[in-house]
Computed example of a mutant assay.
Amino acid sequence: MSTHTNTHKDTDTQGTFRRIAIVTGANRGLGRSTALRLADEGIDLILTYRSHEDEAAAVVAEATAAGRTAHALRLDTADTAAFADFADEVRRLLKESWGREDFDFLVNNAGSAVTEPFLQATEEGFDTMLGVHFKGVYFLTQKLVPLLADGGRIVNLSTGLTRFTSDGLSAYASMKGAVEVFTRYLAKELGPRGITANTVAPGPIGTDFAGGFMRDDEGVRAALAAQAALGRVGEPDDIGGTIAALLSGRTGWVTGQRIEASGGTFL
């Protein structure tokens, strides 16, 4: 069901066409930063959350304060059986709030982490990572691409861990590697419609990922900062800004690419 909405017409008071982005997992962390950065740049929003509805409502309130139309929809991105109904809900919102049958940008951000050393890894943890980070992204995108406007853009979140390694994250990083391959295929298959598809691969970022150790543990932050050319741990706005740049009107010739935003970690 849709919650927390603020409705405007499809054009603003100057008659400018209203662009619309769907951002998954936008109630916190990188998704929240991305959604609010897009709102600041004049883009309307459909954001998703799996839990913490109050956080999603707060993001919608901030987007509304910036003059945007924003809707929050609950979605478990590992529950592929729910994707058809979700697409129907998106279709309804597009018609009722914007008078449109399509949207412009898809950001597949939602995710979680299971930290298990390879020799102790479980099928349960592996399947969780598979469902959230690859199978969910694959089939949710399949359901939403028919609603994506020609000339639209897709950004899938990957990780710096597909280039460098960290203990206990082999399953997570492997799924992100699959997403990078999938994204290149998207770029090829959707290219005739003028749709671009790219991945953004964050390095260490101070969020609640994996329990928030990169945000809260000063010793960890200092060690990670020492490994980065720019000498610090990234913050959510570093990634939100990168994604917004890829969705801007100035990057339409970039497609099928992996853009690492890691501050030069392990160069």
Rank of each mutant, 00 (worst) to 15 (best):
L106V: 03
F134T: 03
S97M: 01
E123H: 14
E89H: 03
F86K: 01
N109Q: 05
G111Q: 08
G125K: 11
S112V: 05
F86N: 05
V90R: 05
E96A: 12
A66C: 10
P117V: 00
A121W: 05
A66N: 02
L73K: 03
D79H: 13
S112F: 11
L130P: 01
T77N: 04
N109S: 11
N108I: 09
L119E: 15
V107G: 03
D88N: 14
V114R: 13
F126I: 04
A113P: 12
E123Y: 07
L119T: 11
F83C: 10
A121Y: 08
V107Y: 12
V107P: 14
S112L: 15
E116M: 13
K135T: 15
E101K: 08
A110F: 01
A81N: 03
R91D: 14
A66F: 06
A121H: 01
T69Y: 11
R100H: 00
G131H: 15
A72T: 00
G67C: 04
L93Y: 08
E89S: 01
N108H: 06
G136I: 03
G131R: 12
L119K: 02
L94A: 10
V137E: 08
T115A: 06
L130Q: 09
G99H: 05
E96P: 08
G136W: 09
R68W: 01
F83H: 03
A121P: 07
G136N: 06
A78D: 02
A78I: 09
R92F: 15
A65D: 00
D102K: 10
A82Q: 14
P117C: 10
Y138K: 15
L106A: 04
E89N: 01
R74D: 02
G131N: 10
W98H: 01
V90T: 08
R100K: 13
R91N: 05
E96V: 14
R91M: 09
Y138G: 05
L94E: 11
G99M: 00
G99W: 06
D88V: 11
F103H: 12
K95Y: 12
L119R: 07
D102C: 05
R92N: 09
G136H: 00
A82L: 14
V137C: 07
A113E: 11
E123D: 02
E116Q: 14
T69Q: 14
H71P: 00
W98T: 01
S97T: 10
H71T: 04
E124I: 03
A66P: 00
G125L: 02
F105N: 09
E116Y: 03
A110I: 11
L73A: 00
G99C: 02
P117F: 02
E124H: 05
T77V: 09
D127G: 08
V114C: 13
N108C: 03
Q120S: 12
V107M: 09
G67S: 00
G136C: 13
L130R: 12
G99D: 01
A66R: 11
R74E: 11
G131I: 13
V90Q: 08
V90Y: 04
E101R: 04
F105M: 10
E101D: 13
K135S: 14
E116H: 04
D102H: 12
V90H: 09
T122W: 15
D76S: 09
R100F: 07
V90L: 13
A84W: 10
T128I: 02
K135A: 09
R100Y: 06
G99S: 03
L130T: 05
L93K: 09
D88H: 13
H133Y: 12
V114M: 06
V114G: 07
A81L: 13
V90D: 05
